[in-house]
Design a binder for these strands. Structure first.
Lengths: 194, 194
DNA sequence: ACCTGAACACCGTTCAAGT
DNA sequence: ACCTGAACACCGTTCAAGT
């Protein structure tokens, strides 16, 4: 099982998930198999099925974990368009902080609690400044799409070049910032500007 | 091999790729294995290795094929920001036209000719109206990211709901159009508007 | 040039059995 | 409640051998 941990029991489920994210970060999505995780935890592969229904179920949970990291990085006082902008930045940088996290997010499913709790809660904070729910939803979807897509491209560009300088703030940053700005302050819900 | 085809020899490589895209569309990314493709073509799995170096190589080629479809859907006379907008629409709708095409694009690599020919050529058409190369590159990246990310979300939403109405122009469309408009006419390359 | 056949290490999943 | 052990069907890849 690895480390017994001092205080809390630390739900076995979470140990598995954290181990999975470690393997993902160090060896990439192709290496992230149930067997690989089991080996890292010194258990049989079949043991994992007591905690997760399937590999897809595990992946879903990993995506939720990543999303929670994004939310955790946000200043709780942020509202409206400022929140949208901060969310976009946090989403991209979180996806960049773990190798292939963007690929995982693309391929993994959306968990129940993400769809029915986390996202609606985030939307509530966006609409708190008077933005309409439809407008908020569209703007958030656009920014989520931009950040995910952008992280995806950065990931494959880095893989082609050579892994190392994944943390460097390079010329990509200004492009992302401009796009983010354009989306956060665009008027959704009415007719396009033309 | 399936159908002998009348006229041209139709490179075996392309038959394999088209078969793969058919399977992807009908059975999804999880079902797209070399064994599955070989079975559909009535050959041994190992036969495919004469045409593609690896599964990753095949995937890369499939991504290129999809991208060529996008380019083929564009009015050749389009330039500058109009081209950017048309590209965004075509990219999204092409990704929606084949099941899991967005997932494939996320996970598949970028081919040599896509990076050194197709993209630069597209960028040339964007800069033809006087847009700076940096600006064009950033705008294109943003729009590519938006379209891919958006298609990704639509795909998983449909998978959750139920496959069928994948072609319907629903409420997602106006959100995408607004975001696309904002990105196509945003000013990249200078300081954000704030 | 193009494909088969056999082999290899690995994979996800199920399930009876242990403790 | 939690895990092992064995089994199953499937997977990507390699390579000698056929034609």
């Amino acid at each position: 099982m690895g480390r017994p941990k001092a205080g809390e029991p630390e739900l076995r489920r979470e140990i598995i998930a954290e181990t999975a994210l470690d393997i993902l970060d160090q060896e990439g999505l192709d290496a992230l198999s149930l067997s690989r995780i089991a080996r890292a935890l010194n258990v049989q592969t079949s043991a994992l099925y007591w905690y997760f229904e399937s590999k897809a179920d595990l992946y879903e949970h990993l995506c939720e974990l990543i999303f929670r990291r994004v939310l955790g990085a946000l200043d709780p006082s942020l509202r409206g368009q400022d929140l949208l902008r901060a969310f976009g930045r946090a989403f991209r940088s979180t996806l960049r902080s773990v190798r292939d996290a963007a690929k995982l997010t693309s391929v993994g499913g959306v968990s129940e609690s993400l769809r029915t709790e986390l996202i609606p809660e985030l939307l509530n904070r966006v609409t708190a400044t008077g933005m309409s729910p439809l407008e908020a939803r569209q703007a958030l979807t656009a920014i989520e799409a931009l950040a995910l897509g952008w992280a995806l491209f950065e990931g494959s560009a880095n893989a082609a070049v050579g892994e190392v300088m994944r943390q460097t703030n390079d010329r990509h940053d200004s492009g992302f910032e401009h796009a983010l700005e354009a989306l956060a302050y665009a008027t959704f819900g009415s007719a396009p500007a033309g």
